[in-house]
């Protein structure tokens, strides 16, 4: 605690009580962080405890905790090939699409940086996809990809590239691709904004000095720009990874997990188990497994970020 903070606290309370006893002062201080503690309790602590309790008990959506179930739900979860493959798909999707979007977003940010003033105008334009409700993003892409009358099929047919309309959302791999494109449309702008900010922190002089030394564009990029933004880039990747693990809305609107279970992500699978099948005990076990998998998948990225940060300081 800084001396100043102590001053402020003392002035915040009626002077005399604070000097006489520490307890009211402590309570006063605790009051300041009570809101965030309350929010964390409701949205994180309570759900975690509740989920653990659910995962070990017999429950339905109507009546939770109707008896002890032991490890039954975890055993079912770990033996369920559909859920396990949903887990694998979710992780693979998050890791690859985040990397793709980071690369693309970084390149666009480089382009916007060199556009100077026009780049700033474009920056407010790319804000729009980010602000669009994901459900509406799904609707728009569904219209583009529709087999009957969709823009993509219409265009491909018109130029004779295909003779029959393709059901993009009815094909396992193409359906994932469709989700990835809609996701890319929505989130790459966010990455562009963050990369643009990271790039603008590089001091002007550094580039000029390298220019004087005769470094070409690629050398300047490789040996100056890239090392300077490596730490921010790794945390942008981590942030996008976290967002990707939340994938739900686009799956719901574009494919509803289909065809079959081909595009069922872990989150979507848990949602259906709880809300449609009312099997909340098993859904809770699945959620806990998913949470652990996310932690494991994110760990290497956190390590990379720490490595870059240490190198910088």
């Amino acid at each position: 605690m800084t001396a100043f903070a102590a001053d402020v606290m003392r002035l915040g309370q009626t002077r005399h009580t604070v000097r006489r006893s520490l307890l009211p002062a402590r309570l006063g201080r605790a009051l300041w962080i009570a809101p965030v503690i309350l929010a964390l309790t409701v949205t994180t602590l309570y759900p975690t405890v509740f989920l653990l309790a659910l995962a070990f008990s017999k429950s339905t959506l109507g009546k939770p905790f109707r008896g002890f179930a032991g490890l039954k739900h975890f055993a079912t979860t770990l033996q369920d090939p559909i859920f396990l493959s949903a887990l694998v798909r979710s992780v693979a999707y998050a890791l690859t699409t985040s990397l793709l979007q980071l690369t693309l977003g970084f390149l666009i940010a480089l382009l916007f940086t060199s556009l100077l003033k026009a780049g700033r105008v474009l920056m407010s334009l790319v804000l729009l996809p980010l602000m669009t409700p994901p459900v509406m993003v799904g609707v728009a892409w569904k219209l583009i990809l529709a087999p009957a009358g969709g823009l993509l099929n219409g265009t491909l047919l018109k130029y004779g590239l295909i003779s029959e309309p393709i059901s993009f959302l009815g094909h396992p791999l193409l359906a994932w691709l469709a989700i990835a494109v809609a996701d890319l449309w929505q989130w790459t702008p966010f990455i562009v904004i963050l990369c643009f900010a990271a790039l603008s922190t590089i001091p002007e002089g550094v580039h000029e000095a390298a220019l004087v030394d005769g470094a070409n564009a690629w050398q300047r990029f490789r040996h100056i720009t890239l090392p300077l933004v490596a730490a921010p880039l790794s945390s942008i990747y981590l942030l996008k990874l976290i967002l990707s693990f939340k994938l739900f809305d686009l799956v719901y609107i574009l494919t509803f997990g289909g065809p079959g279970f081909a595009t069922t992500s872990a989150g979507f699978s848990i949602y259906r188990r709880a809300i449609e099948q009312f099997d909340v005990g098993r859904a809770a076990a699945e959620t806990i497994v998913y949470g652990l998998v996310i932690g494991l998948a994110a760990l290497p990225v956190v390590r990379i970020h720490q490595h870059f940060e240490r190198r910088e300081s």
Binding site: L40, T43, T44, P47, K246, A283, I294
Partner: peptide, 13 residues
Amino acid sequence: SYMAPPIVALIPL
């Protein structure tokens, strides 16, 4: 706490 996907809180909430 932001790392956990919202699906975690769905049933408890």
